[in-house]
């Protein structure tokens, strides 16, 4: 079964993120059952991207979603989605098309195991196939050593895949784009998407970079991105933009550039 899927990985097997521009960068979408890391500094749009991914699944594909957040309440998540124009998010939650496990459910360590058991019960039913964990950074704080973090991240990825999830794991990063500090998360996940922003005179320039996606062709250019009504939008016309030659943009961490961060 598993191998068949890999051999016949057609467009239909792809999980569409529904984010303008991103699916074409990904050549059709995410691979089914993959676990993808979405990294970026605070405010770069990681959570919005996650909310959009689940919203799209429900609206366009009838796929239920699970949103795990260690940092916010369910109401915070719904309001954030609504504020950016995802008006049906609350309805999805009320209809159980999206299940939110918020910080109340997840943060107490004694409840953590209970929550996980509950989550696994929910996902045993075939109706949920998209998952967002916001954030992996918080999940890893439950574990002490690097060795433990690694072991339990691998187990988590296994559990998600086995339960038929295509998952986005959100990670708070320190650097704009990784340079020296590539963490083990980057190696253990199937794919890495980085989000970045830089202030300009007129506002904020935003960028997205799909750096790695196992077993699939991707466009690894850095693309400009916008957050507006409806959420994240990516300008995937590569001819119009080249981040690496953009001298006016001081992002730091260019390969070989050696400049500092923001």
């Amino acid at each position: 079964m598993e191998e068949d899927k890999e051999m016949t990985d057609t467009d239909d097997d792809r999980i569409k993120t529904g984010i303008d521009g991103l699916d074409s960068i990904l050549n059709g979408g995410l691979r089914r059952n993959s676990t993808v890391l979405v990294s970026g500094n605070p405010g770069t749009g990681k959570s919005i991207l996650g909310a959009q991914y689940l919203d799209h699944g429900v609206r366009e594909h009838g796929e239920g979603g699970v949103y795990l957040t260690f940092e916010e309440t369910q109401e915070d998540v719904i309001e954030a989605a609504e504020s950016i124009g995802m008006e049906e998010w609350r309805e999805h939650v009320e209809n159980d098309d999206i299940i939110v496990y918020d910080k109340m459910d997840l943060l107490e360590e004694t409840d953590f195991s209970q929550s996980l058991v509950r989550i696994l019960d929910d996902i045993d039913s075939d109706s949920y196939s998209r998952l967002v964990m916001d954030s992996l950074t918080m999940f890893q704080m439950f574990f002490e050593s690097e060795q433990e973090k690694r072991t339990y991240l691998l187990k988590l990825i296994d559990i998600l895949k086995h339960n038929g999830f295509t998952s986005l794991l959100v990670q708070e990063s320190q650097e704009t784009f990784p340079d020296r500090d590539i963490g083990l998360e980057e190696f253990l996940t199937d794919g890495n998407i980085y989000l970045a922003q830089t202030p300009t005179k007129s506002g904020t320039n935003r960028y997205i970079w799909v750096a790695k996606m196992r077993k699939q062709e991707i466009n690894t250019h850095v693309f400009p991105m916008e957050i507006g009504d409806g959420g994240v939008r990516i300008h995937d016309n590569a001819a119009e933009f080249s981040y690496m030659s953009g001298e006016d943009v001081d992002m730091g961490n260019e390969p070989g550039g050696g400049r500092g961060g923001l």
């Binding site: 360590e109 004694t110 996980l116 187990k155």
Partner: peptide
């Protein structure tokens, strides 16, 4: 002694199930 945490236990149990 480093104690085996609830988080470890829950993930291990879920993982064993699969």
């Amino acid at each position: 002694m480093k104690r085996y945490s609830e988080a470890q236990r829950s993930i291990d149990e879920a993982w064993k199930r699969i």
